[in-house]
Simulated assay, not measured.
Amino acid sequence: MSTRALIADDERLMREQLSARLNEVWPELDIVAVAKNGLEAVALTAQHHPDLVFLDIRMPGMNGVDAARQIAQLPSGDESGDGWSGCEIVFITAYDQYAVEAFEQGVVDYVLKPAERERLTLTVERIRARLAQREASRQPPSTGSAEMQQLLLKLAAQINPNAAASKLRWIQATVGPQIQMIPVEDVLFFISDEKYTRVQTATLEALIRKPIKELVDELDMNLFWQIHRSTLVNTKAIAGVSRDLRGRQLVSVKGHPERLEVSRSFTGLFKGM
C-alpha cells in the first residue's frame, strides 16, 4: 500500500517543484491533494486522510503551524470509524531558525526552500523510517504527542509573538440562572457535546457555547492539554493516568471523581504510562 501525501504551499512554483522532486526521490509516494493555504490543508486532510502532510510554515490566512494544530485535532480512526490514525507533518520553510529545534527534537522534519534533491532525500529517508516504525509499533503519529504540541506552541509564538500575550484568562459561563466569571486556572477540564461546552471546577459546573476548537486557540496550551477532540484538561489538575479493561487511557482529576478518556490521537501525551 503506497504512502499518501498532501502538499500545502501558497507558492505555485514551490508546490510544483516539491511535487517533482518528491517524484524523483520517492516515486511510490502518492500525492493525493495540493492546498494553497492552511484552511485548504486542514479541509483536504480531513477529506483524503493522507499519511503525510507537507506544510509551508508561512501562508496567508492560516499559517502552517496553525494548520498543524488543527490537523492534530481531526478525528482519527477510533472516532471516525475508517481506520485513519492521523498523519506525520513535514514543514516547508525558507526560515531555517523555525525548523532547527523541531529537527533536533526529532518530532518533525522540514524541507528548506528551494527543495534540493540531496536534502530532500535525507528527509524522505527519515520520514519512511518513522512511518515504518509507527506501523510496526502501531503507535499514533507524532502530531498528537506532547512534544509536538509544545513545539507548535513555540513556533506559533515565534511567528506571531503578540498572540502569546493575549491568552484567555477568564471564562464567562452560565451557572444556573446567573452569568459567572471563572478564572481559567480554576478550571479542571472542559468537555464539549454538540451544543455546549461544560466547564468544570472543583466547586461548580458551568456551560458555555464556545467549542473546544476555539478554546484550543484561545487558551494557554501549556496549561491545558487536549486529550480528546471534545476534552481539554488542566495539566495541574491531572492526578494520574490508568488503563481500563479495553486498554483505553483514563485521566484521573484532582478534586473530582470523573475520569476522562484519552482518544487514540492523543495517547502520545502519556507515553510510557
Rank of each mutant, 00 (worst) to 15 (best):
T45W: 05
T45S: 09
A46D: 13
A46Q: 11
A46T: 09
A46K: 10
Q47A: 14
Q47T: 12
Q47G: 10
H49L: 04
H49T: 10
P50V: 00
P50L: 03
L52S: 04
V53W: 02
V53F: 07
V53Y: 03
F54A: 02
L55V: 05
D56S: 04
D56M: 04
I57N: 06
R58S: 07
M59F: 03
M59W: 00
P60V: 08
P60N: 07
P60G: 07
G61F: 00
G61V: 06
M62P: 01
M62S: 07
N63P: 04
N63G: 08
G64M: 04
V65G: 00
V65R: 00
V65L: 01
D66W: 05
A68M: 09
A68L: 06
R69A: 14
R69P: 06
R69M: 15
R69D: 12
Q70K: 14
Q70M: 13
I71F: 10
Q73I: 12
Q73G: 14
L74C: 10
L74V: 11
L74Y: 09
P75L: 10
P75A: 12
S76G: 15
S76I: 13
G77M: 12
G77W: 10
E79T: 12
E79C: 12
S80E: 14
G81D: 14
D82C: 13
D82T: 14
D82N: 15
G83F: 10
W84N: 05
S85T: 15
G86E: 07
C87M: 07
E88Y: 05
V90E: 00
F91S: 03
F91I: 06
F91L: 04
I92C: 02
I92P: 05
T93S: 11
